[in-house]
């Protein structure tokens, strides 16, 4: 009897470990790429720089979006956010010798990105953070690491084909976003919501005529409802996503720029794109040229 029980226990352990292994394998797909974590990274940076401090500390706080599929998204049951922005974060952290699991992910929403950088709540913001002159007054922005443009997501049977057609229609996006301001300037009635998923819902149930934001995000939603939704019009704005850092540490700009340029050259950038935004079917674009640091 005793032996049987032992056998059962052994079998159970075996099954459990097999299942766990399967689970791990499944997770690896979602977790994106493996990055090469630098050894002894701290020695690469001069003493007194912020990079040296972070490398010595062995951890970094990165602010990303949690509600933009493809860009930065964290589901209710996920441990870490996934998307192109977190991938860029992992590449930067790896250069400091910080492994992906040592990154402290923090959710930043559009309205608190500057405040979080100023108060040191996060070390970097990689959160579909368009580079603008106003923002560069209060925070540092290195980049662009990705350039996208604003488009429209409509129902498959919609009459909206060009940007002129939005005059007099109701178009939703996130309250206070640049996209909403742009579409208002095109003559549409702006309808602001808290999240993109709420906005998609309004398009699906017919309350509003279209949703607008960066094309990359729209493609992600169109892929979720291929029969009901489509992405239309040529991109009518240019959003240059940058990496935000505190203006108190200007030395970070050169480091961010060089690290991303290296990733663009050795293919890490393209690989990061393919496992995130590329999943919606768009071709991997040419990486954009980074702005020189001041």
């Amino acid at each position: 009897m005793r032996l049987t029980r032992l056998k059962v226990a052994a079998a159970a352990v075996l099954v459990a470990s097999t299942l766990a292994a399967c689970g791990d394998a499944g997770d690896d797909d979602d977790k994106g790429l493996d990055v090469d974590v630098q050894d002894n990274a701290a020695e690469e940076f001069d003493a007194g720089t912020r990079m040296r401090e972070l490398a010595d500390a062995g951890s970094i706080k990165i602010g990303v979006k949690y509600d933009q599929p493809g860009i930065g998204f964290k589901g209710a049951t996920d441990d870490t956010p996934v998307g192109f922005d977190p991938e860029i974060g992992k590449i930067l952290a790896a250069d400091l010798g910080i492994a992906p699991e040592d990154i402290d992910w923090v959710e930043t929403i559009s309205a608190n990105r500057e405040a979080f950088l100023q108060k040191g709540e996060v070390d970097l913001v990689i959160a579909s953070y368009s580079i603008t002159d106003e923002r560069r007054q209060v925070v540092g922005q290195a980049g662009p690491y990705y350039v996208t443009g604003q488009q429209l997501l409509v129902k498959s049977d919609s009459d909206i084909e060009s940007i002129e057609d939005v005059k007099g229609t109701e178009v939703c996006s996130v309250t206070g976003s640049t996209s909403l301001a742009n579409i208002e300037a095109e003559g549409a009635t702006p309808r602001g919501f808290d999240t993109y998923s709420e906005c998609v819902d309004q398009v699906l149930n017919g309350t509003v005529d279209a949703m607008t934001t960066d094309g990359a995000i729209l493609l992600g939603y169109a892929a979720e409802h291929p029969d009901e939704l489509k992405v239309v019009v040529e991109p009518f704005s240019e959003e240059r996503y940058g990496v935000g850092y505190s203006i108190d540490h200007p030395e970070m700009c050169d480091w961010i720029t060089e690290t991303i340029e290296d990733a663009q050259e050795d293919g890490d950038w393209a690989a990061a794109f393919e496992v995130t935004l590329g999943k919606s079917g768009v071709e991997t674009p040419e990486p954009p040229a980074m702005d020189p640091c001041a």
């Binding site: 209060v138 925070v139 109701e170 309250t175 206070g176 301001a181 009635t189 602001g192 309350t207």
Partner: peptide
């Protein structure tokens, strides 16, 4: 979806981070 005072405030905050 309603562009009242608070929504408009967020619009300005987004455009004028400084």
């Amino acid at each position: 979806g309603i562009m009242e005072a608070t929504a408009r405030m967020r619009y300005f905050v987004n455009r004028n981070a400084d």
